[in-house]
Protein backbone atom coordinates (compact mmCIF):
# COMPACT_ATOMS: atom_id res chain seq x y z
CA UNK A 1 0.00 0.00 0.00
CA UNK A 2 2.87 2.34 0.52
CA UNK A 3 3.04 3.62 -3.07
CA UNK A 4 -0.58 4.73 -3.09
CA UNK A 5 0.00 7.95 -1.30
CA UNK A 6 -2.84 9.74 -3.04
CA UNK A 7 -5.34 7.12 -2.03
CA UNK A 8 -4.19 7.09 1.57
CA UNK A 9 -4.36 10.81 1.92
CA UNK A 10 -7.70 11.13 0.21
CA UNK A 11 -9.19 8.33 2.23
CA UNK A 12 -8.01 9.90 5.45
CA UNK A 13 -9.75 13.02 4.38
CA UNK A 14 -12.90 11.28 3.25
CA UNK A 15 -13.52 8.80 6.02
CA UNK A 16 -14.32 11.36 8.76
CA UNK A 17 -16.61 13.14 6.29
CA UNK A 18 -18.41 9.90 5.49
CA UNK A 19 -18.88 9.20 9.17
CA UNK A 20 -20.23 12.65 9.85
CA UNK A 21 -22.55 12.36 6.88
CA UNK A 22 -23.74 9.02 8.23
CA UNK A 23 -24.66 10.56 11.54
CA UNK A 24 -26.36 13.43 9.73
CA UNK A 25 -28.55 10.97 7.85
CA UNK A 26 -29.22 9.19 11.05
CA UNK A 27 -30.41 12.14 13.08
CA UNK A 28 -32.44 13.54 10.21
CA UNK A 29 -34.19 10.24 9.75
CA UNK A 30 -36.75 11.21 12.30
CA UNK A 31 -38.42 13.85 10.12
CA UNK A 32 -36.89 13.57 6.63
CA UNK A 33 -35.73 10.71 4.40
CA UNK A 34 -32.97 8.85 6.16
CA UNK A 35 -32.71 6.96 9.37
CA UNK A 36 -30.72 4.25 11.05
CA UNK A 37 -30.80 1.84 8.20
CA UNK A 38 -29.33 4.11 5.56
CA UNK A 39 -26.99 5.71 8.04
CA UNK A 40 -25.72 2.33 9.10
CA UNK A 41 -24.79 1.43 5.56
CA UNK A 42 -22.97 4.74 5.11
CA UNK A 43 -21.06 4.26 8.34
CA UNK A 44 -20.12 0.75 7.38
CA UNK A 45 -18.93 1.98 4.01
CA UNK A 46 -16.36 4.14 5.79
CA UNK A 47 -14.83 1.10 7.45
CA UNK A 48 -14.98 -0.83 4.21
CA UNK A 49 -13.19 2.00 2.41
CA UNK A 50 -10.56 1.95 5.12
CA UNK A 51 -10.11 -1.74 4.63
CA UNK A 52 -9.85 -1.38 0.88
CA UNK A 53 -7.12 1.24 1.10
CA UNK A 54 -5.17 0.12 4.15
CA UNK A 55 -5.75 -3.57 4.07
CA UNK A 56 -7.95 -5.93 5.95
CA UNK A 57 -5.62 -6.38 8.90
CA UNK A 58 -5.52 -2.69 9.60
CA UNK A 59 -9.28 -2.49 9.39
CA UNK A 60 -9.58 -5.40 11.78
CA UNK A 61 -7.36 -3.57 14.21
CA UNK A 62 -9.44 -0.43 13.89
CA UNK A 63 -12.72 -2.22 14.17
CA UNK A 64 -12.27 -5.75 15.60
CA UNK A 65 -14.65 -8.44 14.41
CA UNK A 66 -15.59 -9.12 17.99
CA UNK A 67 -16.84 -5.54 18.28
CA UNK A 68 -18.95 -6.12 15.22
CA UNK A 69 -20.51 -9.14 16.84
CA UNK A 70 -21.19 -7.30 20.08
CA UNK A 71 -22.45 -4.28 18.20
CA UNK A 72 -24.93 -6.33 16.25
CA UNK A 73 -26.35 -7.85 19.38
CA UNK A 74 -26.29 -4.60 21.28
CA UNK A 75 -28.14 -2.78 18.53
CA UNK A 76 -30.87 -5.36 18.48
CA UNK A 77 -30.92 -5.24 22.26
CA UNK A 78 -31.38 -1.47 22.28
CA UNK A 79 -34.16 -1.75 19.76
CA UNK A 80 -36.07 -4.32 21.77
CA UNK A 81 -35.20 -2.68 25.09
CA UNK A 82 -36.93 0.53 24.07
CA UNK A 83 -40.08 -1.48 23.75
CA UNK A 84 -39.61 -2.92 27.19
CA UNK A 85 -38.88 0.49 28.64
CA UNK A 86 -42.18 1.79 27.32
CA UNK A 87 -43.80 -1.22 28.95
CA UNK A 88 -42.15 -0.32 32.23
CA UNK A 89 -43.35 3.25 31.90
CA UNK A 90 -46.85 1.86 31.73
CA UNK A 91 -47.57 2.14 28.03
CA UNK A 92 -47.99 -0.42 25.33
CA UNK A 93 -44.97 -1.87 23.58
CA UNK A 94 -43.28 0.92 21.63
CA UNK A 95 -45.77 3.49 22.88
CA UNK A 96 -43.20 6.30 22.95
CA UNK A 97 -45.52 8.99 24.27
CA UNK A 98 -45.07 7.65 27.78
CA UNK A 99 -41.35 8.37 27.67
CA UNK A 100 -41.76 12.08 28.21
CA UNK A 101 -44.57 14.03 29.84
CA UNK A 102 -44.58 16.71 27.09
CA UNK A 103 -47.23 15.09 24.93
CA UNK A 104 -48.26 18.11 22.89
CA UNK A 105 -44.87 18.43 21.19
CA UNK A 106 -44.46 14.72 20.89
CA UNK A 107 -41.22 14.76 22.87
CA UNK A 108 -41.70 11.15 23.84
CA UNK A 109 -42.01 10.25 20.20
CA UNK A 110 -38.73 11.99 19.38
CA UNK A 111 -36.87 10.28 22.16
CA UNK A 112 -38.29 6.90 21.35
CA UNK A 113 -37.60 7.02 17.65
CA UNK A 114 -34.05 8.29 18.07
CA UNK A 115 -33.37 5.53 20.58
CA UNK A 116 -34.78 2.88 18.37
CA UNK A 117 -32.87 4.23 15.40
CA UNK A 118 -29.64 4.09 17.35
CA UNK A 119 -30.23 0.42 17.80
CA UNK A 120 -30.92 0.01 14.11
CA UNK A 121 -27.84 2.01 13.24
CA UNK A 122 -25.57 -0.13 15.36
CA UNK A 123 -26.94 -3.35 14.06
CA UNK A 124 -26.85 -2.36 10.43
CA UNK A 125 -23.36 -0.97 10.66
CA UNK A 126 -21.98 -3.98 12.40
CA UNK A 127 -23.78 -6.44 10.17
CA UNK A 128 -22.47 -4.78 7.04
CA UNK A 129 -18.95 -4.81 8.40
CA UNK A 130 -19.26 -8.37 9.58
CA UNK A 131 -20.45 -9.48 6.17
CA UNK A 132 -17.55 -7.65 4.56
CA UNK A 133 -15.09 -9.29 6.94
CA UNK A 134 -16.63 -12.66 6.38
CA UNK A 135 -16.30 -12.46 2.61
CA UNK A 136 -12.97 -10.74 2.37
CA UNK A 137 -11.31 -12.74 5.10
CA UNK A 138 -12.44 -16.08 3.85
CA UNK A 139 -9.80 -18.64 2.91
CA UNK A 140 -10.76 -21.80 1.10
CA UNK A 141 -11.56 -24.44 3.71
CA UNK A 142 -11.25 -27.29 1.30
CA UNK A 143 -7.89 -27.83 -0.36
CA UNK A 144 -8.07 -27.78 -4.15
CA UNK A 145 -7.23 -31.43 -4.40
CA UNK A 146 -10.34 -32.42 -2.49
CA UNK A 147 -12.81 -30.90 -4.92
Amino acid sequence: MTPHVVLRVVSKLLIPLIIVYGFYIHFHGEYSPGGGFQAGVVLASSIILYALIHGLDAARKAFPPYAARVGMALGAFIFAAVGFVTLIFGGDFFEYTVLHPDVSHGAGQHIGIIAVEIGVLMTVTCVMIAIFYAFSGRSPEIPDGDW
Partner: peptide, 8 residues
Protein backbone atom coordinates in the same frame (compact mmCIF):
# COMPACT_ATOMS: atom_id res chain seq x y z
CA UNK B 1 -34.29 -9.45 23.23
CA UNK B 2 -32.87 -12.61 24.77
CA UNK B 3 -31.21 -13.46 21.49
CA UNK B 4 -28.80 -10.54 22.02
CA UNK B 5 -27.14 -11.73 25.23
CA UNK B 6 -27.02 -15.19 23.73
CA UNK B 7 -25.09 -13.79 20.78
CA UNK B 8 -22.57 -11.99 22.99
Amino acid sequence: ILSTPAAI
